[in-house]
Amino acid sequence: MLGKLVKYDLKASGKLFLLIHIIYLLTCLMVRFFYVNQLDFEAPAVPLFTSIVIASALMLFIITAVCICTWLQITFRFYRNLFGKEGYLTWTLPASSTEHLWAKLLSGYLLSAANTVIIAIGILILVTGENVTAFYAQFAPTFTAELGVPLTTYALWLFLYSLAGGICSVIWIYFCITAGQLFPGHRVLCAIAVYFIFGFVIQALSFLILFLSGYFPGYNHMASQGITAAAYLTGTLLISTVLIVIITVLQYAAMHYIMKRQINLL
């Protein structure tokens, strides 16, 4: 049953997801061949870096748009299929609430992970030109010294972290929508309110923990104490990981309870 639920979830989102990501990859290829490959790093610095800043901002905008589209797809599928009109069919399928929840978690995570992988491939397409790598090689030792590891290793860790973090983001979104269902009316609005209220509380909690552990007000302050960027990044990453894992477990437990005991389709 779980496999069938996941299959139909992916089928429902697959076409649009593929279309968006194919367009993204084609854009990356075009930018690589028609812009990045033409860059001459020996050219005058001001026009060169102005054009790089503009191109980077444009690519950042496209990457953000692709990520937002993916998240909207995951969010809408969860909401519509479980708590919209389609819920009348979904909840009357011979499947348990746990199976429904896991199906949505798996399909949502698969889309999120696929999005992360494709975004990473796009970035690789953009930055692996011979002229870019040769230019970067001049600064590589400085980056390695600051980060403690080569930039490629650091990027790989960041990628794996994003990949793993996808599950937390999926649970976060699902939790907000599910918690919104506890309200008697305006449930979408309530889900958005839950998202922002929880976001604010967690931000405040993160600041408090970073402050108590001495990582606040930031790297500049710590650099003066002789702490490297690598140590700073590793420390903050560790603290946020522990915090995120605890929050995710609590959100999953709450969501599981609501879906098992408090389903009220209006």
Partner: peptide, 21 residues
Amino acid sequence: PCPKTKQIVSYLPDCSFINEH
């Protein structure tokens, strides 16, 4: 009501309940 009862109950809601696409 549980997955077993859902297997033996066939339900027609008062609204369109299937993904229209």
